[in-house]
Every structure is written in C-alpha cells, then in structure tokens.
C-alpha cells in the first residue's frame, strides 16, 4: 500500500527531486533549509507516512529542483541517510542514499568561538570522525552532528 502511494507521488512528478526517509522531526528543518516557503514550483510536503524502514517518515517532492553537491552535503548534515530521487521526464534517473561525506567544505559552522574560521573570511572544513561526529580542520574541536549549525 505504502509502495503504491509513494509510486503515485513520484510518478506525478515530471521533473524534480524527491527526498524520502526524512525523520519526522527533521522535516520542517529540511523544508526551511531548502527555503520551500518561497518556492514557486509545485511542492508536496508529507509527514508521518508509514515506513517499513523507520516507523514514520517525512517526504518532500519538489518540482523543477535539482540539488548540487553543496546542497546535498547540507542535507546530509541535517539528516543523514535520507534518500534522494531525481526525476526527469517522469523517469527516475537517479536514486541514492545521501551519506555524510568524509569532508565538508564550507557547509558547517564551527561551534568554537575562538576558532579562526569564526574570525576570518574563510571556508570551514570539517572531517567526519564517525557517524555522528565532525572534527574542525582548524581548531580540532569535535562536534556532534545533532548540535551542528550550518554556515
């Protein structure tokens, strides 16, 4: 049943992206990150959908939207393990799980106020230490993913 509903939603999209497997408490954070409030294209925001993998989940369908790598990295920081589907001419052209990359360049803000990155016009660089920890290249301080602020 779920599969059908999902297929219908995806199938209805001519060109654009579907973000699936969003934790329900992260859905509106993601919507805000993507500035969907100002989006003039067709947008579907769905939450508390039944899921086999994660109990309940959120889903976004955005017409005419194709993510670049930077945006995908931002998504990965906000909620790792989401699934991204790219649709062109009603066809799925790409489907992938968005994983946290090893290196995040200029995506994340360092929480350390005396880190050089917060005092100089420069790019931040973070390394993934483990699945929920990032480490600042410059000051070496580690931060938990759940506490991360985007740049």
């Amino acid at each position: 049943m779920e599969q059908n509903k999902e297929n219908m939603m995806v199938a209805a999209l001519e060109n654009g992206s579907v973000i699936d497997h969003i934790p329900t408490d992260k859905l509106f954070t993601v919507a805000q990150l993507l500035q969907l409030r100002d989006c003039k294209e067709e947008v579907v925001i769905a939450n508390n959908l039944k899921s086999n993998v994660m109990n309940k989940k959120g889903l976004l369908k955005i017409s005419g939207k194709f993510f670049n790598e930077e945006e995908i990295s931002q998504l990965a920081v906000i909620c790792p393990n989401i699934r991204l589907t790219v649709i062109k001419d009603y066809k799925v052209v790409e489907k992938r799980e968005v994983l946290l990359p090893d290196t995040l360049t200029n995506i994340v803000k360092c929480a350390n106020p005396v880190c050089i990155t917060n005092n100089e016009p420069m790019k931040t660089v973070f390394y993934r230490k483990d699945k929920d920890t990032l480490k600042c290249r410059y000051c070496g301080k580690e931060q938990k993913l759940k506490d991360i602020k985007l740049k």
């Binding site: 880190c115 050089i116 100089e120 290249r137 070496g140």
Partner: peptide, 27 residues
C-alpha cells in the same frame, strides 16, 4: 603566535613561505 585556534594552519594555507606555529590559542 595568535590567540585564535587554527590560525597557524590557516596561515600555512595562504602562503608558500613556511610558517612555524609559536602557539595558536589553547590549541
């Protein structure tokens, strides 16, 4: 020497002149 952490590493990235870190904050 600089009070900000990571200052010496950043400096080493913007120049080809070698940098010796004489202390960057508490780092």
């Amino acid at each position: 020497r600089h009070k900000l952490e990571g200052a010496a590493l950043y400096a080493s990235e913007v120049t080809n002149v070698p940098i010796i870190n004489a202390g960057d904050g508490s780092n």
